[in-house]
Nucleic acid binder design. Structure first.
Lengths: 202, 202
DNA sequence: GCCGTAACTTGACGGTGTAAAGATCGGGCG
DNA sequence: CGCCCGATCTTTACACCGTCAAGTTACGGC
């Protein structure tokens, strides 16, 4: 009876994440419903609940993967640009960050949006992963302060929070549909970098 | 028959906006449903649809009022601080902006969130009002550039977009529940201002 | 071979936005 | 004054949603 679909799916959990990601990618977060997801992997409505406590847990899992992908992208930039000067490195990071948000708007929304952080409640493992991701940013900011690309008058933490907020605001412009011109957005991103960094960076 | 409630409400539209604002204020945007709203003003579920095309239209109307309130707050700051130097003026504006977001998080979310701008579609009159509001910011930025509080190397528009994005990102931190410490947030806000403004402003 | 348990299904409940059609009333005109 | 039109409001219905509770199936270890 291999022709008819088996009672046990076998690989349901990864299949769910895969399918959910696909739905989110091209129908948005609002387009993802547990029922539609279940249908799309050919399983009953409640089956997903044996692998995820509720919808929030599923979203957290997807957001986690998002953080992993983003971290990977950013680590790549750091490794690739070894001999560059400070400001170029900083600019590269910001551009990469914005590009990630542009290319995966729905994932970014999940990672940093209120669906999880305010309305839902973030999984401990998601919290940890997001904290680690921010830690990367703080480290960069520290290095930029040492190289005098960023001013050192405030603590690295505060400077990191402030500059990250600026970057995040930029990403939000796109994601919330407030400002959609992709071309302009890159120019605005560069403007943000120029506003924040000291003109005489190392 | 004045004891029993009349068939025609008479002042339903303003009553709806009032009630909806109240619900949003203390139950969040997600807490507002057309049915609950209708119940709360003692009217049938479909009655609101005679005054607002759909839920989106109602939300736009409330967002508009939000813009009016925000504009009023900010104009107040401008008028009140006449003799101040440039940077103090700029700081005052940013603090006021952030405070508005802190005090009316749900309204702010409605005004600048994706509920209206991406998922829904903004009313023409809302678009106009939000554009006018941003225009205020561009004007301030122009004056700050003239006074050398902000650098003049980029156009006023780009500089306004970039700096507004920074401010908006800050507001978002709070609204999305990513960073909730109100005290810290004000410090971060000041850090943003210091990062953006030139140290030797007029 | 049996049986516990994990995986999955079915049905139901209360919630949502809103389309369609019916009921009621106030105001302007004959 | 009487009538009727149009604005206002109500009722009913539909297709969704998340998920609780209870039932069904199949696999792994004894």
């Amino acid at each position: 009876m291999s022709a008819t679909k088996p009672y046990h799916h076998g690989e349901l959990r990864p299949a769910l994440i895969e399918a959910a990601s696909a739905i989110i990618r091209d129908s948005g977060i609002d387009g993802l419903s547990m029922r539609r997801l279940a249908d799309s992997v050919g399983v009953s409505r409640m089956a997903p609940y044996h692998h995820f406590k509720d919808k929030n847990a599923l979203l957290c899992a997807i957001a986690e993967i998002g953080f992993e992908a983003q971290d990977r992208m950013i680590r790549d930039v750091l490794e690739r640009s070894d001999g560059e000067d400070g400001k170029a490195l900083f600019t590269g990071w910001v551009r990469t960050y914005i590009r990630f948000a542009q290319d995966n708007p729905e994932t970014y929304d999940l990672m940093y949006g209120k669906e999880i952080w305010k309305r839902g409640d973030p999984t401990p493992s998601l919290q940890q992963k997001s904290k680690a991701s921010f830690r990367l940013w703080v480290d960069l900011v520290e290095r930029m302060q040492a190289r005098q690309v960023l001013p050192g008058e405030h603590s690295a933490l505060r400077t990191a929070q402030a500059s990250w907020a600026a970057m995040h605001g930029l990403a939000r412009l796109l994601i919330d549909g407030i400002y959609a011109q992709r071309q302009d957005l890159e120019e605005i991103a560069d403007t943000v970098v120029n506003l924040i960094t000291r003109s005489n960076g190392d």
